[in-house]
């Protein structure tokens, strides 16, 4: 599929089906973008497992940090790549090799991260791919929260949203 734009339905289907996210490049520093995204996604009910070789064995936001995807003992449906584009291919290949064992369904590359060849390999293996987007911003955009900051969410509807009890 093309990766220049995504329909709201495609992004929503991913955000609705995923429960656990392996975040490659998660930072322990509170003012780094990856830390912002991890904290927000945790607040929204996702489990986020940080992957960062430099901080393996430590903890970020209450979760143990692993050196690689393979070392995560449990399953996860999505890999969120918070690394430069040239590092994305290797991470995608590792995810493909672990696809069945971990139950990986989605490869998500962060804002500014794009590797079309790696995306094609992941799609050939049956995974969904999102590139050059942030799951925090997309979650906020599709749930009206991004609009609170004055942004165009491109969501137009006359339907009343359901307020779910916490």
């Amino acid at each position: 599929m093309q990766h220049d734009s995504y329909s709201n339905a495609y992004i929503l289907s991913i955000l609705r089906s995923v429960r656990t996210i392996a975040m490659v490049g998660a930072s322990a520093k509170w003012n780094r973008p990856s830390h912002f995204a991890m904290k927000y996604l945790q607040e929204k009910g996702y489990r986020v497992i940080p992957v960062n070789p430099g901080q393996a064995g430590g903890e970020i936001l209450g979760e143990r940090v692993y050196a690689s995807l393979a070392e995560i003992p449990e399953g996860f449906e999505m890999v969120d790549i918070f690394r430069a584009s040239d590092a994305a291919g290797g991470i995608v290949d590792e995810a493909i090799s672990l696809q069945t064992e971990k139950g990986i369904e989605v490869i998500w590359m962060q804002l500014g991260v794009r590797d079309d060849a790696a995306a094609a390999r992941a799609e050939a293996a049956g995974m969904k791919v999102v590139m050059d987007r942030c799951p925090k911003i997309e979650f906020g955009r599709l749930n009206a929260e991004l609009a609170w900051g004055g942004f165009d969410t491109k969501v137009i509807t006359a339907k009343r949203r359901r307020v779910r009890l916490a």
């Binding site: 734009s5 329909s7 709201n8 339905a9 929503l12 289907s13 609705r16 599709l142 491109k154 969501v155 137009i156 509807t157 339907k159 949203r161």
Partner: peptide, 15 residues
């Protein structure tokens, strides 16, 4: 497309 997605205003951007 799920019913939920349709309910919450799913349209392609800028349409």
């Amino acid at each position: 497309m799920s019913r939920n997605a349709k309910r919450e205003g799913d349209q392609a951007p800028d349409s």
